[in-house]
Simulated scan of single mutants.
Amino acid sequence: MYAQSWQRLLDQAGQAGAMSLASAGTASGGDGGELKHSAKPWSEAAGVAHALQTDTAKVKAALTMAHSGAEAGTAGLASMAALTSVLASWEKRLTAVHTECGSLEPALRETAWAQGEVDAGVKSALARYSAPSSKGR
């Protein structure tokens, strides 16, 4: 049934001829072997991406405001140059997170929607084959 090397490994594992997806359950229990998914994790991830986008914008604004006016009276100090460098670095990072979350949110929402549409389409297609036909198929 399997190549010799695979068969030997399966025999050693005690699962000769019984391969399945880990998420599909087992013949002796589980969920009957059906793969299940939900739009909920995708929708929740989209919500987190939105929250991160909003929060990074707020944090960046607060960080920038906290540093405004810091240069007054500190011209020439090495610590001010370091502080300016650190501020620029954090602003760059926060902007990158904000931008990435902005692009992830709609993609995650689209994935949740698309999975629901695919499920409905597959269910509809399968129903045509499982329902008795009035045309004597």
Rank of each mutant, 00 (worst) to 15 (best):
H98A: 09
T56M: 06
G116F: 02
S23I: 14
T95E: 13
G17I: 04
A96R: 01
C101R: 00
C101V: 01
E34D: 13
A66T: 06
R93F: 13
A16E: 05
G73E: 01
P132E: 05
A46P: 02
H98N: 15
G116V: 02
R109L: 04
A96T: 10
L77K: 15
A82N: 07
A70L: 15
H37M: 08
G14V: 05
V86K: 09
A127H: 10
H37Q: 13
S43E: 08
A112D: 03
L83R: 06
G32C: 09
G33F: 06
L9T: 06
S23T: 15
P132Q: 10
S43L: 07
L126F: 11
P41A: 01
K58Y: 05
E110V: 05
A127I: 03
H98V: 00
L21Y: 14
S38D: 11
V118A: 10
M80I: 07
A127M: 09
Q4P: 06
T111H: 05
G76V: 01
Y129P: 03
A112P: 04
T99G: 03
L9A: 15
R109C: 00
Y2I: 01
W113P: 00
V122L: 13
G25H: 04
A24D: 13
A61L: 04
K60T: 03
R109F: 00
L94Y: 05
A88H: 10
Q12V: 04
G17Q: 03
V118W: 09
G32F: 06
S133H: 12
A96I: 03
S85M: 12
K123Y: 06
A51G: 07
C101E: 04
H98F: 02
C101N: 04
P132H: 10
R137L: 08
A49T: 01
H67A: 13
E91Q: 15
A51T: 12
G136W: 08
A27G: 10
Q53E: 14
E44N: 14
K60G: 01
A3R: 15
S124M: 12
A114W: 02
A3G: 08
R137A: 12
R93S: 14
C101Q: 02
E34A: 15
A18Q: 15
A114N: 07
K36R: 15
G30Y: 08
